[in-house]
Design a protein around this nucleic acid. Sequence first.
DNA 1: CCTTTGCATAGCTAAAATTTATAGCATGAC
DNA 2: GTCATGCTATAAATTTTAGCTATGCAAAGG
Lengths: 313, 313
Amino acid sequence: MTLVQLEYIIAVDTYRSFVAAAEHCYVTQPTLSMQVQKLEESIGAKIFDRSRQPVVPTEIGEKIIKQARIILNESKKIAELLQESKGEVSGELKIGVIPTVAPYLLPDILTTFLRRYPKLQLQIWEYTTERIIQELKLGKLDCGILSTPLHESGIEETPLYYETFVAYVSEASSLYQKKMVTTDEIADKKLWLLNEGHCMRGQVLNLCHYKHNQSLEGTFEYNTGSVETLKRMVDINGGLTVLPEMSILSYDEDQLGQVRYFRSPEPVREISIVTTPNFVRKQAVNALKNEIIALVPDRFKTKKKKEVMGFEL
Amino acid sequence: MTLVQLEYIIAVDTYRSFVAAAEHCYVTQPTLSMQVQKLEESIGAKIFDRSRQPVVPTEIGEKIIKQARIILNESKKIAELLQESKGEVSGELKIGVIPTVAPYLLPDILTTFLRRYPKLQLQIWEYTTERIIQELKLGKLDCGILSTPLHESGIEETPLYYETFVAYVSEASSLYQKKMVTTDEIADKKLWLLNEGHCMRGQVLNLCHYKHNQSLEGTFEYNTGSVETLKRMVDINGGLTVLPEMSILSYDEDQLGQVRYFRSPEPVREISIVTTPNFVRKQAVNALKNEIIALVPDRFKTKKKKEVMGFEL
DNA sequence: CCTTTGCATAGCTAAAATTTATAGCATGAC
DNA sequence: GTCATGCTATAAATTTTAGCTATGCAAAGG
């Protein structure tokens, strides 16, 4: 068994074709076919069922390919270790960010960060928490920025900042008259919510003491994945919603007039940068972490950890 | 970079000698030297400092070798996957067991287990919890049998049975007159304890409400790693100790006469079999698990999980 | 100063990976 | 039915590489 053979079977699995796989490996098709055969011979099992078109992995082949991806992933880390030791913050950094954080955090960060580390190539995906964890474990992402604690083994969390939630109320709402609101006061109101899969949905439901999916019918009408949409729904259709504090930083006075902070104990979410435990490019992630911490206003760092909300996915 | 090259650098690291490493890899020294050089050239960094005798890895070399061990470890799993898929329970199974469990569980298990799976080669080490976790993560052990919960990320626990602790008192002790004892009653007595590093020490200290290392001087005199020694100390020097229930299964009537169960809530420890999350030889471990569960008396399986004691290492 | 020990280098050989060319085998078009 | 077409396997030739033997060279020990 060689690393090259493992690369080849991964390519065949990816492209479901020996010809296409060979092209992408920059070798000829017979070369690739031979190596795959040799590997199959050496382990004593067929990895691909070539009688079907397109070729598909066998049952055991699936498992072997999965393991092969792990092996090659670990192999790549040797090169990363070397970059790391040179103090170079370079190469690709693949980041997953939840949609309730991304638009308020990344635009500010990116320009300064990329100017400071010109050799770094960022790739960013907006994914839900669940997907970020999944892709981290598969090695498809290098790090994630999301709300913690996750209580997920195999994921290391480094808190970046703490962010309160605020209510955003329409002028017609009875709460508009109040200076501050309590979590109880919003529990029975018409509340615009993110759709399922967003950790913030769970947090908001928690803070107003709802159980998931319970008595939502009739009370809530429209689900979206975007915090901006929530705000607009309030603007146009009335009612209220809950926003992360960072989303209101760019609001003008009119908009801020509709924002109501919560009375103590304020609901707070913890935003962390997460990696897998044996991730080696700590310098690059550290650089990103420091950039974020430097840019986030100070009051986002002083919230007490004890106030942080739990949530379920 | 090839898997063979990684094997070679691991061998050089292990034996701190190119000559010895070559022998153990069944190649000549020039062959091995050349491959190490080629690897160093391809990654653009020296892995070993050959100017010292014996050769030592460079700083970056240390990291590369560590990663190389991970890669080869993951590579081995492909062969294991295949055995696994054939339904064969075979090969080596390296098990770590804590010393307060091993002598009461393993002797009974081993003969029947090995008769059922003749192709399996068991290697067993008596290690402390800490060491078992460490070696599991390094891939030097396949599984561990120890007291849980560990609250350790990267370790998966599967409970096997629940075992109460019992007091073992000398005839001279005031507690000898009682039919049952409470945890409070033993707190101020002369208590023979295991030495540090054993999880059971922590559990026993917990159950009699001691903080670690606090006010032990004078009260306790002798530390040992063996439960049998604790019992003998009581037999010969008086006082009392706490034993795991399984250790008294083989006691005769005289000895049982010195055993006192605890009043409810009984202190219970959970014994689990643990592996790393991406361990692939689940069938072999499962076979061992089933063998143990089948052999352990039923009452060890009915304890409620809620009663299980926590502990620190 | 000579021997021993240990790694590196050089030249050679055998094995293995890769290439080009071609065969075989389905599948769908006509 | 037969003829392309698209895919993978096989064969033979070639290049690359891993490994071997022999030897060199430097450092440590007697």
